[in-house]
Design a protein around this nucleic acid. Sequence first.
DNA 1: GGTTTTTTTGAACAAGCGTTCAATTATATT
DNA 2: AATATAATTGAACGCTTGTTCAAAAAAACC
Lengths: 217, 217
Amino acid sequence: MSGARKRSGAEESTQERILNAAEQLFAYSGLDGTSVRQIADKADVQVGLINYYFGSKEGLYRAVFTTRAPVVVEERRIGLRMAALEKDPHRRLELIVKAIIVPMLNMRSRDGSNHFSQLLAREPRDPRSVERGIIAEIFDPIALEIIESLKEIWPDRSDAEVHWAYQMIIGVMMYIMSDHGRISRLSGGAADPKNADETLRIILPLVMQGIEGKPTG
Amino acid sequence: MSGARKRSGAEESTQERILNAAEQLFAYSGLDGTSVRQIADKADVQVGLINYYFGSKEGLYRAVFTTRAPVVVEERRIGLRMAALEKDPHRRLELIVKAIIVPMLNMRSRDGSNHFSQLLAREPRDPRSVERGIIAEIFDPIALEIIESLKEIWPDRSDAEVHWAYQMIIGVMMYIMSDHGRISRLSGGAADPKNADETLRIILPLVMQGIEGKPTG
DNA sequence: GGTTTTTTTGAACAAGCGTTCAATTATATT
DNA sequence: AATATAATTGAACGCTTGTTCAAAAAAACC
Protein backbone atom coordinates (compact mmCIF):
# COMPACT_ATOMS: atom_id res chain seq x y z
CA MET A 1 0.00 0.00 0.00
CA SER A 2 2.81 2.36 0.82
CA GLY A 3 3.46 3.19 -2.83
CA ALA A 4 5.78 6.15 -3.22
CA ARG A 5 7.80 5.69 -0.08
CA LYS A 6 11.45 5.24 -0.86
CA ARG A 7 11.35 6.13 -4.52
CA SER A 8 14.07 8.51 -5.56
CA GLY A 9 17.38 9.28 -3.89
CA ALA A 10 16.05 12.24 -1.92
CA GLU A 11 13.47 10.55 0.23
CA GLU A 12 11.03 12.55 2.31
CA SER A 13 11.20 12.42 6.06
CA THR A 14 8.15 11.48 8.08
CA GLN A 15 7.62 15.08 9.16
CA GLU A 16 7.79 16.27 5.59
CA ARG A 17 5.29 13.68 4.44
CA ILE A 18 2.90 14.75 7.16
CA LEU A 19 3.39 18.43 6.36
CA ASN A 20 2.76 17.88 2.67
CA ALA A 21 -0.37 15.86 3.28
CA ALA A 22 -1.61 18.37 5.83
CA GLU A 23 -0.97 21.32 3.54
CA GLN A 24 -3.01 19.74 0.80
CA LEU A 25 -5.92 18.65 2.97
CA PHE A 26 -6.08 21.82 5.05
CA ALA A 27 -6.08 23.86 1.85
CA TYR A 28 -9.02 21.94 0.48
CA SER A 29 -11.12 21.20 3.56
CA GLY A 30 -9.93 23.69 6.15
CA LEU A 31 -8.81 23.07 9.70
CA ASP A 32 -12.15 21.74 10.91
CA GLY A 33 -13.01 19.86 7.74
CA THR A 34 -9.84 17.79 7.85
CA SER A 35 -9.31 14.93 10.28
CA VAL A 36 -5.95 13.79 11.57
CA ARG A 37 -6.72 10.34 10.22
CA GLN A 38 -7.18 11.70 6.71
CA ILE A 39 -3.80 13.36 7.00
CA ALA A 40 -2.19 10.22 8.41
CA ASP A 41 -3.64 8.13 5.58
CA LYS A 42 -2.43 10.50 2.90
CA ALA A 43 1.02 10.69 4.46
CA ASP A 44 1.07 6.89 4.86
CA VAL A 45 1.77 7.24 8.55
CA GLN A 46 0.26 6.22 11.88
CA VAL A 47 -2.19 8.68 13.45
CA GLY A 48 -0.20 8.93 16.65
CA LEU A 49 2.81 10.33 14.85
CA ILE A 50 1.01 13.60 14.19
CA ASN A 51 0.76 14.27 17.89
CA TYR A 52 4.23 12.89 18.44
CA TYR A 53 5.81 15.37 16.04
CA PHE A 54 3.50 18.35 16.17
CA GLY A 55 1.80 18.11 19.55
CA SER A 56 -1.72 18.61 18.27
CA LYS A 57 -3.76 19.05 15.12
CA GLU A 58 -3.57 22.81 15.46
CA GLY A 59 0.15 22.50 16.09
CA LEU A 60 0.45 20.80 12.73
CA TYR A 61 -1.70 23.48 11.12
CA ARG A 62 0.58 26.12 12.55
CA ALA A 63 3.67 24.17 11.45
CA VAL A 64 2.48 24.20 7.84
CA PHE A 65 2.53 27.98 7.95
CA THR A 66 5.82 28.37 9.75
CA THR A 67 7.57 26.09 7.27
CA ARG A 68 6.02 27.45 4.08
CA ALA A 69 5.33 31.12 4.69
CA PRO A 70 8.92 32.35 5.14
CA VAL A 71 9.55 31.72 1.44
CA VAL A 72 6.86 34.22 0.48
CA VAL A 73 7.89 36.73 3.11
CA GLU A 74 11.53 36.59 2.04
CA GLU A 75 10.66 36.98 -1.65
CA ARG A 76 8.59 40.03 -0.78
CA ARG A 77 11.40 41.50 1.25
CA ILE A 78 13.83 41.07 -1.64
CA GLY A 79 11.34 42.65 -4.04
CA LEU A 80 10.94 45.54 -1.65
CA ARG A 81 14.69 46.14 -1.50
CA MET A 82 14.87 46.15 -5.27
CA ALA A 83 12.03 48.64 -5.42
CA ALA A 84 13.88 50.96 -3.04
CA LEU A 85 16.66 51.36 -5.61
CA GLU A 86 14.27 52.73 -8.23
CA LYS A 87 14.02 56.53 -8.25
CA ASP A 88 11.02 57.09 -10.50
CA PRO A 89 7.92 57.05 -8.22
CA HIS A 90 5.68 55.31 -10.76
CA ARG A 91 8.17 52.54 -11.45
CA ARG A 92 8.95 52.26 -7.77
CA LEU A 93 5.27 51.76 -7.01
CA GLU A 94 4.99 49.15 -9.70
CA LEU A 95 7.90 47.25 -8.21
CA ILE A 96 6.33 47.37 -4.78
CA VAL A 97 3.04 46.02 -6.11
CA LYS A 98 4.93 43.30 -7.91
CA ALA A 99 6.81 42.50 -4.72
CA ILE A 100 3.45 41.79 -3.13
CA ILE A 101 1.77 39.86 -5.90
CA VAL A 102 4.51 37.93 -7.67
CA PRO A 103 5.66 35.76 -4.73
CA MET A 104 2.07 34.62 -4.32
CA LEU A 105 1.72 33.79 -8.01
CA ASN A 106 5.09 32.04 -7.92
CA MET A 107 4.00 29.88 -5.04
CA ARG A 108 0.97 28.79 -6.96
CA SER A 109 3.03 27.39 -9.78
CA ARG A 110 5.77 25.98 -7.57
CA ASP A 111 5.73 22.21 -7.34
CA GLY A 112 5.84 21.46 -3.65
CA SER A 113 3.70 24.28 -2.33
CA ASN A 114 0.98 24.94 -4.86
CA HIS A 115 -1.62 24.14 -2.23
CA PHE A 116 -0.20 26.52 0.29
CA SER A 117 -1.35 29.56 -1.67
CA GLN A 118 -4.92 28.35 -1.26
CA LEU A 119 -4.40 27.72 2.42
CA LEU A 120 -2.81 31.12 2.86
CA ALA A 121 -5.68 32.83 1.07
CA ARG A 122 -8.11 30.98 3.27
CA GLU A 123 -6.69 31.49 6.73
CA PRO A 124 -7.25 35.25 7.23
CA ARG A 125 -10.85 34.88 6.01
CA ASP A 126 -11.65 32.71 9.03
CA PRO A 127 -12.86 34.75 12.03
CA ARG A 128 -11.07 32.39 14.38
CA SER A 129 -7.82 33.19 12.60
CA VAL A 130 -7.53 36.14 14.95
CA GLU A 131 -7.37 33.81 17.97
CA ARG A 132 -4.75 31.66 16.29
CA GLY A 133 -2.67 34.73 15.46
CA ILE A 134 -0.76 33.01 12.69
CA ILE A 135 -1.26 35.77 10.13
CA ALA A 136 -0.45 38.51 12.61
CA GLU A 137 2.72 36.75 13.69
CA ILE A 138 4.06 35.90 10.26
CA PHE A 139 2.70 38.54 7.92
CA ASP A 140 2.13 41.71 9.92
CA PRO A 141 5.85 42.63 9.96
CA ILE A 142 6.31 42.45 6.19
CA ALA A 143 2.96 44.19 5.71
CA LEU A 144 4.17 47.11 7.78
CA GLU A 145 7.41 47.21 5.79
CA ILE A 146 5.42 47.43 2.59
CA ILE A 147 3.28 50.21 4.01
CA GLU A 148 6.42 52.11 5.01
CA SER A 149 7.65 51.81 1.44
CA LEU A 150 4.37 53.17 0.17
CA LYS A 151 4.56 56.10 2.56
CA GLU A 152 7.93 57.05 1.09
CA ILE A 153 6.33 57.40 -2.32
CA TRP A 154 3.31 59.23 -0.93
CA PRO A 155 4.57 61.64 1.73
CA ASP A 156 1.47 63.78 1.29
CA ARG A 157 -1.06 61.00 1.88
CA SER A 158 -2.60 60.29 5.25
CA ASP A 159 -2.09 57.04 7.11
CA ALA A 160 -5.62 55.94 6.32
CA GLU A 161 -5.16 56.60 2.60
CA VAL A 162 -1.96 54.61 2.43
CA HIS A 163 -3.44 51.75 4.40
CA TRP A 164 -6.54 51.59 2.26
CA ALA A 165 -4.41 51.54 -0.88
CA TYR A 166 -2.38 48.69 0.58
CA GLN A 167 -5.51 46.78 1.51
CA MET A 168 -6.79 47.17 -2.01
CA ILE A 169 -3.68 45.54 -3.46
CA ILE A 170 -3.87 42.68 -0.99
CA GLY A 171 -7.62 42.36 -1.44
CA VAL A 172 -7.52 41.94 -5.20
CA MET A 173 -4.61 39.53 -4.97
CA MET A 174 -6.17 37.43 -2.21
CA TYR A 175 -9.47 37.26 -3.99
CA ILE A 176 -7.88 36.00 -7.16
CA MET A 177 -5.67 33.54 -5.32
CA SER A 178 -8.63 32.01 -3.56
CA ASP A 179 -10.80 31.67 -6.63
CA HIS A 180 -12.01 28.15 -7.29
CA GLY A 181 -13.25 28.40 -10.83
CA ARG A 182 -15.92 31.07 -10.58
CA ILE A 183 -13.97 33.67 -12.55
CA SER A 184 -13.42 31.23 -15.37
CA ARG A 185 -16.97 29.91 -15.16
CA LEU A 186 -18.62 33.33 -15.33
CA SER A 187 -16.45 34.53 -18.19
CA GLY A 188 -16.72 31.32 -20.17
CA GLY A 189 -12.96 30.90 -19.89
CA ALA A 190 -12.13 34.41 -21.12
CA ALA A 191 -10.65 35.34 -17.75
CA ASP A 192 -8.75 32.62 -15.92
CA PRO A 193 -6.49 33.23 -12.92
CA LYS A 194 -4.79 29.88 -13.49
CA ASN A 195 -2.65 31.65 -16.05
CA ALA A 196 -0.13 33.47 -13.85
CA ASP A 197 1.46 35.68 -16.52
CA GLU A 198 -1.88 36.79 -17.91
CA THR A 199 -3.21 37.44 -14.41
CA LEU A 200 -0.29 39.69 -13.52
CA ARG A 201 -0.50 41.51 -16.84
CA ILE A 202 -4.15 42.35 -16.26
CA ILE A 203 -4.19 42.88 -12.53
CA LEU A 204 -1.14 45.10 -12.33
CA PRO A 205 -2.48 48.08 -14.34
CA LEU A 206 -5.88 47.69 -12.69
CA VAL A 207 -4.37 47.97 -9.26
CA MET A 208 -1.87 50.64 -10.27
CA GLN A 209 -4.53 52.93 -11.66
CA GLY A 210 -6.65 52.38 -8.60
CA ILE A 211 -4.06 53.43 -6.09
CA GLU A 212 -2.04 55.94 -8.09
CA GLY A 213 -4.66 58.71 -8.41
CA LYS A 214 -5.09 60.99 -5.44
CA PRO A 215 -7.96 59.38 -3.43
CA THR A 216 -9.72 62.35 -1.86
CA GLY A 217 -10.63 65.74 -3.31
CA MET B 1 -33.74 28.50 30.74
CA SER B 2 -35.65 29.46 27.65
CA GLY B 3 -35.13 33.16 28.22
CA ALA B 4 -36.20 35.28 25.26
CA ARG B 5 -38.85 32.98 23.93
CA LYS B 6 -42.23 34.67 23.81
CA ARG B 7 -41.10 38.19 24.53
CA SER B 8 -42.62 40.76 22.19
CA GLY B 9 -45.75 40.53 20.13
CA ALA B 10 -44.00 39.27 17.01
CA GLU B 11 -42.61 35.97 18.20
CA GLU B 12 -40.12 34.03 16.13
CA SER B 13 -41.08 30.67 14.72
CA THR B 14 -38.95 27.63 15.44
CA GLN B 15 -37.53 27.65 11.92
CA GLU B 16 -36.59 31.30 12.23
CA ARG B 17 -34.86 30.74 15.54
CA ILE B 18 -32.85 27.90 14.05
CA LEU B 19 -31.96 29.96 10.98
CA ASN B 20 -30.80 32.90 13.06
CA ALA B 21 -28.66 30.75 15.31
CA ALA B 22 -27.25 28.88 12.32
CA GLU B 23 -26.42 32.07 10.45
CA GLN B 24 -24.47 33.40 13.38
CA LEU B 25 -22.57 30.22 14.14
CA PHE B 26 -21.85 29.30 10.53
CA ALA B 27 -20.53 32.82 9.96
CA TYR B 28 -18.12 32.52 12.84
CA SER B 29 -17.06 28.88 12.74
CA GLY B 30 -17.92 27.72 9.25
CA LEU B 31 -19.89 24.69 8.16
CA ASP B 32 -17.49 22.15 9.60
CA GLY B 33 -16.63 24.12 12.70
CA THR B 34 -20.23 24.35 13.82
CA SER B 35 -22.12 21.43 15.33
CA VAL B 36 -25.86 20.94 15.11
CA ARG B 37 -25.96 20.82 18.90
CA GLN B 38 -24.38 24.26 19.14
CA ILE B 39 -27.06 25.57 16.80
CA ALA B 40 -29.83 23.80 18.70
CA ASP B 41 -28.60 25.20 22.00
CA LYS B 42 -28.40 28.73 20.69
CA ALA B 43 -31.86 28.45 19.14
CA ASP B 44 -33.21 26.90 22.35
CA VAL B 45 -34.50 23.91 20.44
CA GLN B 46 -34.10 20.13 20.38
CA VAL B 47 -31.36 18.78 18.11
CA GLY B 48 -33.74 16.59 16.17
CA LEU B 49 -35.72 19.58 14.96
CA ILE B 50 -32.89 20.66 12.70
CA ASN B 51 -33.18 17.49 10.68
CA TYR B 52 -36.95 17.61 10.92
CA TYR B 53 -37.14 21.04 9.32
CA PHE B 54 -34.07 21.19 7.14
CA GLY B 55 -33.27 17.55 6.40
CA SER B 56 -29.61 17.79 7.25
CA LYS B 57 -26.94 20.11 8.54
CA GLU B 58 -26.00 21.08 5.00
CA GLY B 59 -29.67 21.57 4.23
CA LEU B 60 -29.80 24.14 7.00
CA TYR B 61 -26.63 25.75 5.70
CA ARG B 62 -28.23 26.02 2.29
CA ALA B 63 -31.45 27.36 3.80
CA VAL B 64 -29.60 30.22 5.45
CA PHE B 65 -28.47 31.35 2.01
CA THR B 66 -31.78 30.89 0.24
CA THR B 67 -33.59 32.92 2.88
CA ARG B 68 -31.05 35.73 3.25
CA ALA B 69 -29.38 36.15 -0.12
CA PRO B 70 -32.42 37.25 -2.17
CA VAL B 71 -32.42 40.56 -0.30
CA VAL B 72 -28.93 41.37 -1.56
CA VAL B 73 -29.65 40.15 -5.06
CA GLU B 74 -32.83 42.20 -5.31
CA GLU B 75 -31.12 45.35 -4.01
CA ARG B 76 -28.42 44.90 -6.62
CA ARG B 77 -31.00 44.45 -9.35
CA ILE B 78 -32.76 47.66 -8.34
CA GLY B 79 -29.46 49.53 -8.28
CA LEU B 80 -28.67 48.20 -11.72
CA ARG B 81 -31.98 49.43 -13.11
CA MET B 82 -31.36 52.85 -11.66
CA ALA B 83 -27.91 52.90 -13.22
CA ALA B 84 -29.39 52.09 -16.64
CA LEU B 85 -31.29 55.41 -16.57
CA GLU B 86 -28.09 57.42 -16.25
CA LYS B 87 -26.66 58.60 -19.59
CA ASP B 88 -23.21 59.82 -18.55
CA PRO B 89 -20.84 56.81 -18.73
CA HIS B 90 -18.79 57.82 -15.71
CA ARG B 91 -21.82 58.31 -13.49
CA ARG B 92 -23.40 55.18 -14.85
CA LEU B 93 -20.32 53.19 -13.93
CA GLU B 94 -20.32 54.67 -10.48
CA LEU B 95 -23.93 53.65 -9.98
CA ILE B 96 -23.16 50.12 -11.11
CA VAL B 97 -20.26 49.85 -8.69
CA LYS B 98 -22.49 51.18 -5.94
CA ALA B 99 -25.17 48.67 -6.90
CA ILE B 100 -22.61 45.96 -6.17
CA ILE B 101 -21.09 47.29 -2.99
CA VAL B 102 -23.86 49.12 -1.16
CA PRO B 103 -26.23 46.15 -0.63
CA MET B 104 -23.35 44.31 1.00
CA LEU B 105 -22.52 47.22 3.27
CA ASN B 106 -26.20 47.65 4.08
CA MET B 107 -26.50 44.05 5.12
CA ARG B 108 -23.64 44.47 7.50
CA SER B 109 -25.43 47.19 9.42
CA ARG B 110 -28.87 45.62 9.19
CA ASP B 111 -30.11 44.21 12.46
CA GLY B 112 -31.21 40.70 11.66
CA SER B 113 -28.59 39.74 9.12
CA ASN B 114 -25.33 41.38 10.11
CA HIS B 115 -23.73 37.96 10.34
CA PHE B 116 -24.81 36.90 6.92
CA SER B 117 -22.36 39.25 5.23
CA GLN B 118 -19.53 37.39 6.91
CA LEU B 119 -20.99 34.06 5.92
CA LEU B 120 -21.45 35.25 2.36
CA ALA B 121 -17.89 36.51 2.16
CA ARG B 122 -16.70 33.16 3.47
CA GLU B 123 -18.57 30.67 1.33
CA PRO B 124 -16.96 31.26 -2.09
CA ARG B 125 -13.49 31.09 -0.48
CA ASP B 126 -14.11 27.45 0.43
CA PRO B 127 -12.98 25.05 -2.32
CA ARG B 128 -15.89 22.76 -1.54
CA SER B 129 -18.25 25.61 -2.25
CA VAL B 130 -18.08 24.54 -5.88
CA GLU B 131 -19.61 21.15 -5.01
CA ARG B 132 -22.36 22.80 -3.00
CA GLY B 133 -23.13 25.17 -5.86
CA ILE B 134 -24.85 27.70 -3.63
CA ILE B 135 -22.97 30.71 -4.99
CA ALA B 136 -23.38 29.62 -8.59
CA GLU B 137 -27.09 29.08 -8.13
CA ILE B 138 -27.87 32.30 -6.29
CA PHE B 139 -25.29 34.83 -7.45
CA ASP B 140 -24.18 33.86 -10.96
CA PRO B 141 -27.34 35.28 -12.59
CA ILE B 142 -27.01 38.75 -11.04
CA ALA B 143 -23.28 38.68 -11.69
CA LEU B 144 -23.92 38.13 -15.38
CA GLU B 145 -26.46 40.97 -15.38
CA ILE B 146 -23.86 43.30 -13.89
CA ILE B 147 -21.31 42.23 -16.47
CA GLU B 148 -23.81 42.93 -19.23
CA SER B 149 -24.30 46.42 -17.83
CA LEU B 150 -20.56 46.96 -17.84
CA LYS B 151 -20.32 45.82 -21.43
CA GLU B 152 -22.83 48.49 -22.44
CA ILE B 153 -20.51 51.15 -21.05
CA TRP B 154 -17.43 49.56 -22.58
CA PRO B 155 -18.40 48.34 -26.05
CA ASP B 156 -14.76 48.44 -27.13
CA ARG B 157 -13.44 46.23 -24.34
CA SER B 158 -12.94 42.50 -24.70
CA ASP B 159 -14.84 39.95 -22.64
CA ALA B 160 -11.76 39.21 -20.60
CA GLU B 161 -11.18 42.87 -19.80
CA VAL B 162 -14.75 43.40 -18.64
CA HIS B 163 -14.70 40.25 -16.54
CA TRP B 164 -11.41 41.14 -14.89
CA ALA B 165 -12.73 44.59 -14.07
CA TYR B 166 -15.82 43.03 -12.52
CA GLN B 167 -13.74 40.60 -10.52
CA MET B 168 -11.66 43.45 -9.20
CA ILE B 169 -14.75 45.21 -7.85
CA ILE B 170 -16.01 42.04 -6.23
CA GLY B 171 -12.55 41.16 -4.95
CA VAL B 172 -11.97 44.40 -3.12
CA MET B 173 -15.46 44.35 -1.68
CA MET B 174 -15.29 40.73 -0.55
CA TYR B 175 -11.89 41.23 1.00
CA ILE B 176 -13.08 44.16 3.03
CA MET B 177 -16.31 42.44 4.05
CA SER B 178 -14.43 39.45 5.34
CA ASP B 179 -11.87 41.38 7.32
CA HIS B 180 -11.71 40.47 10.97
CA GLY B 181 -9.72 43.32 12.43
CA ARG B 182 -6.47 43.10 10.49
CA ILE B 183 -7.04 46.30 8.55
CA SER B 184 -7.72 48.22 11.73
CA ARG B 185 -4.89 46.49 13.56
CA LEU B 186 -2.25 47.21 10.93
CA SER B 187 -3.27 50.82 10.52
CA GLY B 188 -3.61 51.48 14.24
CA GLY B 189 -7.26 52.28 13.70
CA ALA B 190 -6.67 54.78 10.88
CA ALA B 191 -8.47 52.54 8.40
CA ASP B 192 -11.48 50.64 9.71
CA PRO B 193 -14.02 48.86 7.49
CA LYS B 194 -16.55 48.82 10.33
CA ASN B 195 -17.42 52.36 9.31
CA ALA B 196 -19.65 51.76 6.28
CA ASP B 197 -19.86 55.35 5.00
CA GLU B 198 -16.12 55.89 5.28
CA THR B 199 -15.43 52.57 3.62
CA LEU B 200 -17.59 53.40 0.62
CA ARG B 201 -16.12 56.91 0.36
CA ILE B 202 -12.60 55.48 0.16
CA ILE B 203 -13.20 52.31 -1.77
CA LEU B 204 -15.35 53.81 -4.50
CA PRO B 205 -12.73 56.13 -6.06
CA LEU B 206 -10.07 53.45 -5.64
CA VAL B 207 -12.12 50.94 -7.57
CA MET B 208 -13.38 53.51 -10.09
CA GLN B 209 -9.89 54.65 -11.02
CA GLY B 210 -8.76 51.06 -11.29
CA ILE B 211 -11.35 49.98 -13.79
CA GLU B 212 -11.99 53.19 -15.68
CA GLY B 213 -8.65 53.55 -17.44
CA LYS B 214 -8.16 51.49 -20.54
CA PRO B 215 -6.49 48.28 -19.29
CA THR B 216 -4.21 47.27 -22.18
CA GLY B 217 -2.07 49.41 -24.45
C1' DG C 1 -65.79 17.14 20.02
C1' DG C 2 -63.43 13.79 17.84
C1' DT C 3 -59.96 12.97 14.32
C1' DT C 4 -56.09 13.83 11.62
C1' DT C 5 -51.92 16.24 10.95
C1' DT C 6 -48.10 18.78 12.57
C1' DT C 7 -44.74 19.75 15.92
C1' DT C 8 -41.90 18.62 19.81
C1' DT C 9 -39.71 15.51 23.02
C1' DG C 10 -36.06 12.58 24.84
C1' DA C 11 -33.24 9.19 23.95
C1' DA C 12 -30.64 6.30 21.34
C1' DC C 13 -27.62 4.98 17.33
C1' DA C 14 -23.22 3.91 14.96
C1' DA C 15 -19.32 6.31 13.34
C1' DG C 16 -15.79 9.42 13.71
C1' DC C 17 -13.15 12.63 16.39
C1' DG C 18 -8.30 14.16 18.67
C1' DT C 19 -5.32 12.36 21.80
C1' DT C 20 -2.65 9.09 24.75
C1' DC C 21 0.41 5.27 25.83
C1' DA C 22 2.84 1.09 26.65
C1' DA C 23 5.33 -1.94 23.75
C1' DT C 24 8.26 -2.65 19.81
C1' DT C 25 11.56 -1.58 16.32
C1' DA C 26 15.22 1.29 14.44
C1' DT C 27 18.97 4.47 14.86
C1' DA C 28 22.83 6.70 17.19
C1' DT C 29 26.22 6.83 20.77
C1' DT C 30 29.96 4.99 23.56
C1' DA D 1 28.86 -5.22 21.38
C1' DA D 2 26.19 -2.87 24.82
C1' DT D 3 23.61 0.98 25.87
C1' DA D 4 20.81 5.03 25.27
C1' DT D 5 17.86 7.67 22.46
C1' DA D 6 14.57 8.27 18.83
C1' DA D 7 10.93 6.65 15.88
C1' DT D 8 7.09 3.75 15.00
C1' DT D 9 3.41 0.59 16.00
C1' DG D 10 -1.27 -0.80 17.22
C1' DA D 11 -4.72 -0.24 20.07
C1' DA D 12 -7.35 1.96 23.17
C1' DC D 13 -9.38 6.13 25.61
C1' DG D 14 -13.47 9.19 26.39
C1' DC D 15 -16.06 12.31 23.88
C1' DT D 16 -18.58 14.46 20.12
C1' DT D 17 -20.48 14.09 15.74
C1' DG D 18 -24.98 14.00 12.46
C1' DT D 19 -28.95 11.48 12.16
C1' DT D 20 -33.01 8.58 13.36
C1' DC D 21 -37.32 7.28 15.69
C1' DA D 22 -41.12 5.96 18.51
C1' DA D 23 -43.89 8.31 21.75
C1' DA D 24 -46.09 12.45 23.52
C1' DA D 25 -48.00 16.99 23.03
C1' DA D 26 -50.10 20.73 20.28
C1' DA D 27 -52.60 22.53 16.47
C1' DA D 28 -55.61 22.28 12.72
C1' DC D 29 -59.47 20.41 10.62
C1' DC D 30 -64.27 18.71 9.88
